[in-house]
């Protein structure tokens, strides 16, 4: 059998098998789910070896005389001392190292990631020759109002009583509405993404799979 035909049929059967979940939870869907997870895990192991360890660790150690690379996995294996009460401190050594790296990484990346976004919150609220009134009102004022009302929603230290508290409460309510609109937009994008994936699979089933034995379907939807 032509391997390409076998791959097409395998893909089609797997797609239909996974979609049987739409009827209800069943062993066929589970089977293909497990196959997918197993394939991904196997693929990851092979790629870590062929694209990384083989070239950057194994070859230098075996063929280029860098024998000291043999100690690299030893450091990694220290993690397994988490199962020994007596030698747990060895695992803690390597964990401490990783905590330190993670903390340093977070500290280093925090400002480059977030400071430009904080600067971008300072927007001109008066029109000038470069920015027309419509832009200022539609974009900048709206942005600043949403920014303050949403921030006030997350300001929990003042009870919503008294004149200031009630004003804060109204602002927080408005902020909650803006958040709901944002969540609605996010959910709309989620629906779009899920339907895109479904359309992609139907394209495959119609054009590639059915198209392989009924030529009229081939090329449709591509």
């Amino acid at each position: 059998m032509n391997p390409e035909i076998a791959i097409l049929w395998g893909g089609a059967i797997a797609t239909l098998g996974v979609y049987t979940i739409l009827y209800r939870e069943n062993p066929v869907s589970r089977l293909f789910e497990h196959i997918f997870v197993g394939l991904s895990a196997g693929y990851l192991i092979v790629f870590i070896w062929t694209q990384n360890l083989e070239g950057r660790w194994w070859k230098p150690m075996i063929h280029e005389g860098r024998w000291y690379w043999v100690f690299a996995p030893v450091v990694g294996l220290l993690f397994y001392f988490i199962y020994s009460r007596r030698l747990l401190w060895l695992a803690r050594l390597v964990m401490g190292l990783f905590f330190g790296i993670a903390a340093g990484y977070f500290f280093r990346t925090f400002f480059p990631i977030y400071s430009p976004q904080i600067y971008a919150c300072f927007k001109p609220l008066r029109a000038d020759p470069q920015i027309g009134w419509s832009d200022v009102v539609l974009h900048n004022w709206l942005f600043v109002i949403i920014l303050f009302t949403v921030l006030s929603y997350f300001f929990f230290s003042v009870s919503h009583e008294g004149r200031f508290g009630r004003t804060l409460g109204r602002s927080a309510l408005l902020g909650r509405w803006f958040l709901m609109i944002a969540f609605g937009a996010m959910f709309g994008n989620t629906v779009m993404a899920r339907i895109s994936l479904f359309i992609g699979r139907v394209q495959f089933l119609l054009s590639d799979w059915i198209g392989s034995f009924i030529p009229w379907f081939a090329g449709r939807g591509v």
């Binding site: 430009p116 976004q117 600067y119 971008a120 944002a182 937009a185 996010m186 994008n189 989620t190 779009m192 993404a193 899920r194 895109s196 359309i199």
Partner: peptide, 26 residues
């Protein structure tokens, strides 16, 4: 980005950290 995750990255676009962004299949 996939459409699911794109809304979370608009602030990067607004701040100029990104030159542009493709949102999902759209």
């Amino acid at each position: 980005y996939t459409a699911v995750m794109a809304p979370g990255y608009y602030p990067f676009l607004d701040s100029g950290q990104m030159q542009g962004m493709l949102v999902g299949a759209k």
